[in-house]
Amino acid sequence: MKEHRIERAEVFVVGPDVERYTWAEGMSGQYMANIILRLTAASGLQGIAGGAMITPHSFDRAVGETLRHVLPDVIGRHPGEREILWKQMRNLGTPMVPQAHSLIDIALWDMAARHANLPLYQLLGGARDKILSYASTPLLADNQAYIDYVGERHEEGFKAVKFHCWCQPERDLPMCAAVRKHFEGRDLALMLDVEQRYDLHSATRAARTLSDLGFRWFEAPLVDTDIEGYREIRRQSTVPVIAAGNTWTDLQMLLQGARAGAWSALRVDATICGGITPIRKVMGLAEALGMDVEIQCWGYTLTQAANLHVMLAFDNCTYFEQPVPYPAFEYGSHDVIRTDKQGYVHAPNGQGLGIAIDWKAIEAASILHFEIR
């Protein structure tokens, strides 16, 4: 197996000139760097992974610079050594930017699936080959803009829409009521994400309102670590409540939160929680607890693909998060993931992640590029 030992790693921090969006009142247009890792074995076998780093003012190079210091330990290793590499990186002296750890693990899984001539979701278990999606909106101007936007997405085939909004209860809740009233009787699920910006009083009041409106879930009303607050929201309402999924990502932390009754479902992202290796364990943990895992997918196509493959490998996730409008999230990918007329996204074609990259476009927009041998 020596021919498959990794001999080169390339890192691209990509800052494309695309539309920038906001997710709450007072935010400026956010810069979303696309950090891409490409591993190459002596045999020519490759593995890729991508993750997003979202910051105000300018593109962030932190994940790329972190990879510079940890990738030398990957050189000479075999893609079959995923578990031991994951544990070694997890126990470094100083906690590192989590996306760096995640990208290495995902790229190793991509290599393994390509070597097996399988799409990644089939290597992971292959529970299904499609899943319903929800349109995940940016912040819009007013109630009518949301009504119009939801109508457009529904016409395209979406059966679910999640609102990013002002994160101000006095504006958010009337908007939710207006959209629900306009689309009453339609086959359309609605969700609300308030980016961890409510206080407990506002969150409990909002949850009761969303319960009455029949919302599919209420996302990130409080900071992820406020377990007691989440328990109280659930005690006072019936709408399903989930966290943002960016802070409590470790298996033991998630177990504590689930046992405490903080959330209706778990929430993680393979590109943030450490990769495919740990998210598989999260899926199993949730199944043992009788819970779903509503995986987030906000980012460019490679981020979406890694999470989609996990969703398709297991059956305890109900929706794929489809960031819209499409173009800003598809830069640098020949293959893209889009929702069909029936409201589903399908498994990408091809081996591994199944995403062909436009490397010329990636190189043209790279603000940091280096190679480790």
Rank of each mutant, 00 (worst) to 15 (best):
K2G: 10
E7Q: 08
R8F: 03
A9S: 07
A9W: 02
V11F: 06
V11W: 03
F12N: 03
V13N: 03
V14A: 00
P16D: 01
Y21W: 11
T22M: 11
A24F: 07
A24H: 08
E25R: 13
E25Q: 10
A33K: 03
N34P: 02
I35L: 05
I35R: 04
L37R: 01
R38H: 14
L39N: 00
L39S: 05
A41L: 04
G44H: 08
G50Q: 05
G51P: 03
A52M: 08
M53G: 03
T55Y: 13
S58D: 15
D60C: 11
T66P: 01
L67V: 05
P72Y: 02
P72N: 07
H78P: 08
H78Y: 10
G80H: 13
E81F: 08
E83L: 09
I84F: 08
M89A: 12
N91K: 14
T94Y: 11
P98S: 02
Q99M: 14
A100V: 07
L108H: 04
L108C: 13
W109V: 07
H115K: 11
A116C: 13
L118Q: 08
G126F: 01
G126R: 03
A127C: 13
R128W: 04
D129R: 14
L132W: 00
Y134R: 05
S136Q: 03
N143F: 11
Y149G: 04
V150F: 05
K162R: 15
H164K: 14
C165H: 08
W166D: 08
C167P: 05
Q168G: 07
P169L: 06
M175I: 12
V179L: 08
V179D: 06
F183E: 03
F183C: 12
G185P: 03
R186S: 13
M191L: 11
V194R: 00
V194M: 02
R197V: 01
S202Y: 04
A207L: 01
R208W: 04
S211Y: 05
F215I: 07
R216S: 13
W217V: 02
E219G: 06
A220E: 07
V223F: 06
D226C: 06
R234K: 09
I242H: 02
L251A: 10
R259N: 14
L266S: 01
V268N: 04
D269N: 15
C273M: 13
C273F: 00
G274D: 04
I276P: 00
T277H: 11
R280L: 14
R280V: 15
L289T: 06
G290P: 06
V293A: 07
I295P: 01
I295T: 14
C297R: 00
G299D: 00
L302W: 06
A305V: 15
A306L: 06
L308H: 09
A313P: 05
C317M: 07
P323E: 06
P325K: 09
Y326A: 14
F329H: 12
E330Y: 06
E330T: 13
E330W: 07
H334D: 09
V336P: 05
V336A: 07
R338S: 11
K341A: 13
P348D: 02
G352T: 05
E363M: 15
E363C: 06
S366I: 12
I372T: 11
